[in-house]
């Protein structure tokens, strides 16, 4: 496996070209996507709606055939060795996929049998995993009566039941309240850190990706827009932002700022200046310039944009 859990090589999936979509509906869902996911990390796969995230997960699991390119998961080719991939992966897809008329224990029992876990190990693991999410006492309740958050936690537990080395999670915290989402994030982080499980997750929640992921990829229209550590992406998109708080930001001072080669844009509002700098643009000369122009500077912050801002910038750049 050479330390790489997932390797996508020019992976492409088109709907419609081979009669797999309604007539007149031709979409390039994944477009020559190439990336590698190292083993043992939490990998965030970010993108707006319709970017191709769910299709990529389906391709990884061998549930769809690629139109072109290759997709290797844990050393197996998803297209030709899908069964080997699914044997070793846990998955939570777009929907929880729980049998609502069955109890929590029966849902896990079924998937424990599916993964051929020996009876004693299965029973012990179900107890361990249900206790872990605080649901052991409610194991005999019909899942259909549970809240969305409870179902989601159970679905994640199901994906982890057979101790897979790789879990693929499509929006795992969608619809969860703050506390439940935090618990899920904590357990995913500990999975990667303590058990060496590779977690591949898609999310819309940038704060979540920022806290949880060691590496993120941003895709749009099925193509890779950016790949890197969340900090790197933040720096790339918003690392050169300067925020200055103070008074007397005159029009003349702003004009001289805009004339500086290091400055891309200046925005002033209510005693607050936001200055977008070019890469490696220095802050100190700009502050001096303002002070010389009569501005009273109270606070200067070298901008660290949030991942969300970085994401928006990256997606906007691609438009």
């Amino acid at each position: 496996m050479d330390g790489i859990a997932i390797r996508l090589i020019e992976l492409t999936r088109q709907f419609g070209s081979r009669g797999k979509a309604p007539r007149g509906f031709d979409v390039l869902a994944v477009d020559h996507l190439t990336l590698e996911v190292p083993a043992g990390i939490v990998f965030g796969f970010l993108g707006p709606n319709g970017a191709g995230k769910t299709t990529t997960i389906r391709l990884l699991l061998g549930l769809l055939e690629p139109t072109d390119g290759r997709c290797q998961v844990l050393g197996f080719d998803s297209a030709t060795q899908g069964a080997d991939v699914r044997e070793r992966c846990g998955a939570l897809l777009e929907y929880s996929g729980l049998y609502e008329q069955l109890s929590a224990e029966e849902n896990l029992e079924f998937y424990g049998r599916v993964y051929r876990m020996p009876v004693l190990d299965r029973k012990a693991r179900i107890r361990e995993i249900l206790s872990g999410i605080g649901m052991w006492e409610r194991r005999n309740e019909m899942v259909g009566r549970w809240s969305r958050g409870e179902k989601q936690k159970l679905a994640i537990a199901r994906a982890l039941l057979h101790r897979p080395p790789l879990v693929l999670l499509d929006e795992p915290t969608a619809g969860l309240d703050v506390m439940a989402a935090m618990e899920v994030r904590e357990s995913l982080a500990s999975l990667a850190a303590q058990q060496g499980v590779t977690v591949f997750l898609t999310t819309h929640n940038m704060a979540e990706a920022e806290k949880l992921c060691n590496l993120v990829a941003v895709i749009r229209h099925g193509s890779l827009v950016a790949l890197g550590h969340p900090d790197t992406l933040r720096m790339r998109a918003g690392g050169s932002r300067l925020e200055i708080i103070g008074r007397n930001f005159t029009a003349a001072a702003l004009e001289s700022l805009r004339a500086q080669p290091a400055v891309v844009a200046v925005e002033a509002s209510n005693g607050r200046l936001l200055i977008d700098l070019r890469q490696d643009g220095e802050a100190a000369p700009l502050v001096s310039l303002l002070v010389e122009a009569g501005a009273q500077v109270e606070e200067v912050r070298r901008g660290k944009a949030t991942l969300e801002e970085a994401f928006v910038d990256l997606v906007e750049e691609e438009k």
Binding site: L63, E87, L98
Partner: peptide, 11 residues
């Protein structure tokens, strides 16, 4: 009920 896809994603 969206359970088939999860079943298909199993081994």
């Amino acid at each position: 009920r969206h359970t088939l896809e999860t079943l298909l994603s199993s081994r």
